[in-house]
Design a binder for these strands. Structure first.
Lengths: 196, 196
DNA sequence: CACACCAAGTAGACGCCGTTCACATCGGCC
DNA sequence: GGCCGATGTGAACGGCGTCTACTTGGTGTG
């Protein structure tokens, strides 16, 4: 349901209907619609990281790792993470909409959890972890100084996520695919240049 | 209602209730809830551009415009647009959420309008226009080459909009204000560096 | 073996929502 | 003076999320 129609299209009643069950049964497994949405969001994030992993080709078997090659590989990985993120958003806009946006409303009413043992949802999202790893690799291979590494994840994530939204909801909504392709690499390359 | 609670908090019934009127009356002025939301979005965008205009200090009265100064002023204006955008998103997250995201669902079912004279909503948003103007000024003053100017609006908008989302919904949700302040200028400066 | 127990599901209700339709009302214009 | 269009009303329909009391079927234990 999320896949076609986005977050708003997730209906608890419709979900139970498809499961061949009455609406009340859902409350045996989820605290409510929001909880169901959060569970879906987690499932989607796994798919997303998997896709981002396959988007960047695995390191070639040759072990001739001159420092220069290691740096180039780190840069390629960083580009792959960014382009993979954008690619996922374009391929599955409904899923994408849910991932980083689904759970909390705009109000700050998330405080005052019920129990004490409540595990907060503040664990870092897997796709964000992939970005962190790529940036660390850039620092370790000398592509990024330690100073420039600091906070770079926010700059990179901002640009890539913002572009994804631009393509899905914004003025690039119905631009031809080749234009979006070209702009994708432009955004990723420019942001990497700016962050170095 | 949108201001506190975001897009989802806009209820047509509640709106008519506050207006002291029955729900049906709304349909004399709007085609439905989506149309009301679109009207609200337009109103918000005007407020947003006004705020972005005041965020960048007006040009000093001195008319000693060496080319160098004109370039510096163009750069300042570009920074101001970016920081104003982020500032608006932080000050009014509910409004912000609606502006670039309110109207269409994720599906592409916007086609097949009813009448022939239907004016499409593809007119460019005013805050985006402010960005275009700032970038043009950068080109005219030599800050940006004509080649680099091409498509730069998408790179800039991506970074700034993405950062705003990061602050509102993402891992920077409850970061202290000073950290967000510092990261804001980092993002804006890095993206300008990358785009040049 | 029998029994208590508990997870899972059901039936039905409540209040909110968006939307529609037939009907009232009231002001301005020919 | 009578018409008409804009505006609002009242009631209804179906869908939604959520809650509560009640049934049921399997499982582990005395």
């Amino acid at each position: 349901m999320i896949r076609e129609g986005g977050t708003a299209a997730l209906s608890l009643r419709e979900a139970t209907r498809r499961a061949g069950v009455t609406p009340g049964a859902a409350y045996r497994h989820f605290r409510g619609r929001d909880d169901l949405l959060a569970a879906a969001s987690r499932a989607i994030q796994e798919q997303m990281t998997a896709r981002m992993r396959t988007a960047v080709p695995p390191r070639p078997a040759g072990e001739v790792s001159v420092a220069e090659d290691a740096a180039a590989r780190a840069l390629d990985r960083l580009r792959g993470v960014g382009l993979g993120y954008i690619g996922f958003a374009r391929a599955e806009p409904g899923w994408f909409e849910t991932v980083f946006f689904g759970a909390p409303g705009v109000g700050a009413e998330t405080g005052a959890g019920e129990g004490a043992g409540e595990e907060r949802d503040h664990e870092v999202a897997p796709p964000f972890l992939a970005l962190l790893a790529a940036l660390d690799e850039c620092r370790d291979t000398g592509v990024l100084t330690a100073e420039r590494r600091e906070g770079a994840e926010f700059v990179c994530w901002s640009a890539v996520h913002g572009f994804a939204e631009l393509v899905i909801h914004g003025p690039l909504r119905d631009a031809p695919a080749e234009v979006v392709d070209a702009l994708s690499v432009r955004v990723v390359d420019d942001i990497i240049a700016g962050v170095r």
